[in-house]
Amino acid sequence: MKKQLALFGLAVPLLAAPAIAQVPPTGREVMETHKMQDRTQDTEAEIRMTIISARGGTRERDIVMWTKTRSDDTQMQLIRFQSPADVEGTGFLSIENLGREDDNWLYLPALRKTRRIAGADKRDSFVGTDFSFEDLEPERLDSYEYRLAGSEIVEKSETWVVEATPTDPKKIEETAYGGRQLWIDKKNGVMRRSEFYGRDGTFLKRLNAEDVRPVPGTDKWRAYRLTMEDILGGSRTVLEISSYHIDEGVPEEYFTQRYLRRR
């Protein structure tokens, strides 16, 4: 795996702009700017998911996703389906716990019931899309080793290219990836692209972030369109975010079973 990434790295001219006598940042430093950009107290996002199969069939789903980060950096997340009509109101609630299994609940409106569900495997597909649960998690800087591999232009933006290799034993066990290559916008720390490699070095998926702009009323930049491609399988999933609401104070009670049950 390392060999593979190193090989990719060679294609990138190291230390691209020595004209300005500036010391380039380390991989970790780049990721810290990303983390700064990414971190919020809470976020509400309205998302249209379009799943396009390799044979061209499409499925569209609209969801709203609320996340809240607690002081210990653990997350609570509520996802509610808006459409198609037959799954409207279906909800998934997950609460990350330090040191023990996460709690996951599901609400099926047609059954009028919440059910605890077994902790989803982080490698599993997120509601049938090409994203897995781990792809949507915030970056945990302490679980990876980051190496600056150069700089590149992505969609007219200058980016740092960073290679991320999992080092934390727990992470190594639960992740599907042997490594990732990340393109971080030099200007604002937004992730513009990532490529995911399997444990055996197979190039699995590519995520492209487009339509990156500031979220009105905040100092945060966000991609309003994310496309995940399954390289070998040929399917892809497009997430179009119609709105982000950042740090507007998502109530704590959203992340309760009782709220989950309320449609």
């Binding site: 037959d86 799954v87 279906t90 047609a110 569900i117 495997d121 597909s125 049938g128």
Partner: peptide, 23 residues
């Protein structure tokens, strides 16, 4: 007691199954 639509139930079951990693 409430009446619900069987078709919605099935749709939601399938979503649930997909989400639980079943393929």
């Amino acid at each position: 007691e409430v009446n619900v639509n069987g078709r919605d139930l099935i749709a939601q079951y399938l979503l649930l199954y997909e989400n639980a990693g079943g393929d």
